[in-house]
Structures are given as structure tokens and as C-alpha cells.
């Protein structure tokens, strides 16, 4: 509301000052002194600020012992500075069969529900190598090679598991606010499905599209 008022005020101010000749002739005709309009009402909030980015990703997640599976994810980045960002990360994948299950042909180790893997994490990222990509003679895109790491939770095989993840990726800004990602990460968490507690490395490769807002 306040914003709109400011816009109106600004528009009015511009309108009045854009026709100085008119205003002067008015003065002469009426003999009235027009009030000086202060135009330093520029509101910072009207600047289109793009510090957030929503990212949709798709790719492969290798769940240790449970084959390589397709995954989907969504992330939210907040850019604290031009180099540093914080990230909320959520992903989902369905685990495949272990080699044992395939070879023995016996009872599955996990139920369908237990095969669902969901993970979320809070990450910190850094644009390590900002740069430009020279696509053609007249087309240049801004880009960045970034690293990020964080902690979170992975729900797999019926249990919540504390996880940490780290990775690196490459971002290309195709349009002013549209980016394309290619990313490689490792999700590390303990799995006790085989009777012993085992630390697993679960590698993820994904491509993604991001939108700044």
C-alpha cells in the first residue's frame, strides 16, 4: 500500500516536473507560487531484488548396495553476498534391489515403503570460481563453479539417519534470472540394514534449473 502511494507520488512528481514550461506559464497566468516538489522519494523497495533462487533438479542417486536410481530434488538458495549462499535442500529417490536380492531371488530386504529415500539438508555454499562462458561470437553467459556442504537428515530403510553432504557444481546463467546447473554431491549416512552399522557414500549426479526471485 505504502509502495503504491510512493509510486503515485513519484509519478505525480515526474509529471509536474516534466513540464516546466507549462508550470512556468501557469505561474505567470495565475500569479501563484507553485510549491517546490521534493523528488527524493525514491523507494529502495521498488528495486527488483533477486537474492533468492529456487532450483529444481533431476538426476541419479547411487544408494550404496541398492543400485543407481533416478532422483528428484528441490532447493532454495539465499545469496548472502555475491559469493556466499545458504541452501535448503530436499531430494527423493527410490532404492533398487541389492545384488543379493537379485541373485538369490528370495525375499526382499526392504518393503516398498522402506525403499523410499528422502533427504533434506541445510548447506552453505561458496562461488569459488565465478566467470564467463563464451558460447558464441556474440553470446556470453555468466557462470560460477561452486562448492557446498551441509548437514541434514536422510530417511531410508524405515529409519531417520543423520547425514552430511558435500559437493561441487557448475552454474550458467542462461538468462538474467534463469540458471542451468550440473552438480555432483556425496551424501554420507549410516545404514544398518545388513546387521552392522555401516557408513555409506551415496553419490548424486544431477542437472537442475534455477530461477532467481
Amino acid at each position: 500500500m505504502e509502495n503504491r502511494l510512493c509510486h503515485l507520488f513519484l509519478a505525480l512528481a515526474l509529471l509536474i516536473t516534466a513540464s516546466p514550461a507549462l508550470a512556468a506559464s501557469d505561474d505567470e497566468q495565475t500569479g501563484l507560487i507553485q510549491p517546490t516538489v521534493e523528488r527524493n522519494q525514491f523507494d529502495e523497495a521498488t528495486i527488483d531484488s533477486n537474492d533468492f533462487e529456487i532450483i529444481l533438479s533431476a538426476g541419479y542417486l547411487s544408494i550404496e548396495d541398492f543400485a543407481v536410481n533416478s532422483m528428484l530434488g528441490v532447493k532454495l538458495n539465499y545469496y548472502v553476498t555475491d559469493s556466499l549462499f545458504v541452501q535448503l535442500d530436499w531430494l527423493q529417490a527410490t532404492a533398487g534391489d541389492t545384488s543379493y536380492e537379485i541373485l538369490s531371488g528370495g525375499a526382499p530386504l526392504l518393503t516398498d515403503e522402506e525403499r523410499e529415500l528422502t533427504a533434506y539438508a541445510i548447506n552453505l555454499g561458496y562461488n569459488l570460481l565465478p566467470g564467463e562462458v563464451f558460447f558464441s561470437e556474440h553470446t556470453t553467459f555468466n557462470s560460477a563453479f561452486f562448492i557446498n556442504a551441509g548437514i541434514g537428515n536422510a530417511t531410508f530403510a524405515g529409519n531417520d539417519r543423520f547425514s552430511y553432504n558435500y559437493g561441487a557444481g557448475f552454474r550458467v546463467l542462461l538468462l538474467e534470472n534463469l540458471s542451468l546447473y550440473s552438480e555432483f554431491r556425496n551424501h554420507v549416512f549410516d545404514v544398518d540394514v545388513f546387521g552392522i552399522n555401516k557408513t555409506t557414500n551415496n553419490l548424486q549426479f544431477s542437472i537442475a534449473v534455477g530461477w532467481y526471485f
Binding site: L10, I47, D48, F52, L76, L88, T118, N153, T155
Partner: peptide, 28 residues
């Protein structure tokens, strides 16, 4: 997906659902 996970997702959606700024050229 557990409750916490869905809340987390909801948080992402809530933030991204915030009204977007009209990107008209308003700077003098």
C-alpha cells in the same frame, strides 16, 4: 516422507510463494 521432512518442504514452498516484485523499470 516424515512430518519433519514435509514441513521442511513446506517452508521452501512458503518462502518461494512470497509475492514477487513487479519488475517494471521504475528507477528514475
Amino acid at each position: 516422507m516424515n512430518a519433519f521432512s514435509s514441513l521442511f518442504l513446506l517452508l521452501i514452498l512458503a518462502v518461494t510463494g512470497m509475492p514477487l516484485q513487479a519488475d517494471e523499470d521504475i528507477s528514475p
